[in-house]
Amino acid sequence: MNLEEKLKSGKFVITSEIGPPKGTNIAPHIEEAEYLRGKVDAFNVTDMQSSVMRLGSLATCRLLFEKGLEPVFQLTCRDRNRLALQSDLLSAAVLGIKNVLVLTGDHTVLGDHLQAKPVFDLDSVSLLKVATGLMEGKDMVGNELDGTPDFFLGAVVSPGYDPQELQLIKMEKKIESGAKFFQTQAVYDLAAFETFMKAASRFGIPVLGGIVLLKSAGMAKFMNENVAGVNVPDKYIKMMAAADKKERAKVSIGIAAELINGMKNLCQGIHIMPLGWEKYVPAVLETAGF
């Protein structure tokens, strides 16, 4: 079963994430994915995350595909105008990539090429609509396609975002534009997540709750201050602060497992963003009872 079929079947789905390198040295990243083979259902490949110039998502997706691992092609609107975006979607299709996660993308000034021209010709909602149009055999201006792609389109949502209603409005727009599943920003506050999921349940669409492994109390504090929609509760910060260096990973795994367990009955899967701690993912899953 592929990701789409698993979600349809009602299976609790687990996805993880690969961030391609700055350079051509992709081998270690593929190894990390290999390490999780059989433990997660699909791998997101980020599209120059944080607006830092890196190896492309599409090529990395193809490499995973060739290894028999299921990729999710992340595509942002930051760097490409509507021609390039449509073209890349067609490229993905011929390379065998079906899952596409559409995002607006961070602004260029947050990355390492401050001088770049931010594009944002389309945004996540309009790009979803465009991708849906391609699946129906038409490009954006209505020209017929010779050969039609088939995608399983996903999008993101940020449950901790304030005002929440604004996220829900946009989520609905994304669904109307063709999104079939959602992955969320990192969740640490289960109560807030529950409220969000209650509100989002009316859409009847699969949501994979986001998990980011805490590496330290400092990281938690930093995210609280700087990452939109992320709110790590004090108790986790205290737990991380109390743990000595050797214990930290263990504590972090415990927290992640607790969160996953808490989410199990609220959503349709989880999306783990290990940010370099791929080696701990199996432990997290094991602790959480998978």
């Binding site: 947050l110 944002f120 945004d123 309009s126 409005i169 946009k170 727009k173 700087n226 939109a228």
Partner: peptide, 21 residues
């Protein structure tokens, strides 16, 4: 909006409603 978005916010706003840029 620094991204000129037409269909709603990106996810980048901080918890106090500030722009990511």
């Amino acid at each position: 909006c620094p991204k000129g978005l037409l269909n709603g916010p990106c996810g980048g706003a901080s918890s106090d409603g500030r722009c990511e840029v």
